[in-house]
Amino acid sequence: MSPQGQAMALKLDGAAGAAHVATVGRDVRETVGEIRVNDPRVRCTDVNVHYGDKHAIKNISLDVGKGEVLAMIGPSGCGKSTFLRCLNRMNDTVRECRVTGEILLDGEDINSRHIDVVPLRARVAMVFQKPNPFPKSIYENVAFGPRIHGLCESKADLDVVVESSLRKANLWDEVKDRLDDVGTGLSGGQQQRLCIARAIAIEPEVILMDEPCSALDPISTAKVEQLIEELRQQFSIVIVTHSMQQAARVSQRTAYFHMGDLIEVSETDRLFIKPRHQLTEDYITGRFG
């Protein structure tokens, strides 16, 4: 797929593509690039996150399009993971973390009081940095989501879901003969794909991935990246990565975070070839990181 093709497919929203002007705080930087897309799955407006006294995310607005992979890059501690965790309210599990601003999922504010986080997280599932299969069998790991959410009427249904999820995660052929083995016994790359299978078994709309390949070897990484490419057909994917190469390989759009600010959002090729912001350029040319 050519870079142009990807960019065209996204049909960037020209009006919102202009620089988004910060409205609060003097130390907040403006975002350069196209923060809005035409047909957003998730639309964030003026999101702020505080950890106690620390202002971790500063007034960020950003869209996630349907069927796109959005990569988030930036130096460590820049807030990209924190922002990712806002999208399915994982920050609720962190004490003294405060999130403000508007995050719309299909037009509905997920931070609103009457939104229940449980079905929300079933729609916006998450895959973590370190593979974290439950200490149960491979089958039980994948079946966990459908079971708790009551998605399957019968054991046969469940079998079907488990198989299809494992197939989608490109893991079926490797584990079909040992579904009853403990998930933690798999290799790192297999574990991570198992975690992805576990997430897609509940048919979410968005999958959040927090540095999913940082603990994996290059071959496993390649397999996971290929998987991401395939999953894009069905899900919106937001991936945080510390590797610019990976962002360039898997994503259509890339957002660059710096010290809690969203500096620049562009289609991936443009961001890496012609960054518009000095900080972005410094980062991708390796001046810091």
Binding site: N88, M90, T93, V117, V118, P119, L120, R121, A122, R123, A125, M126, V127, F128, K130, N132, P133, F134, P135, K136, F144, G145, R147, I148, H149, C195, R198, A199, I202, L208
Partner: peptide, 24 residues
């Protein structure tokens, strides 16, 4: 990470405790 894994898929606290933390 196990807790997050369960929460990240939309398990409630009691489901996380009963199905993930307690068996682990």
């Amino acid at each position: 990470s196990l807790r997050e894994g369960a929460y990240g898929m939309g398990a409630t606290s009691s489901e996380t405790i009963r199905r993930v933390i307690f068996p682990a």
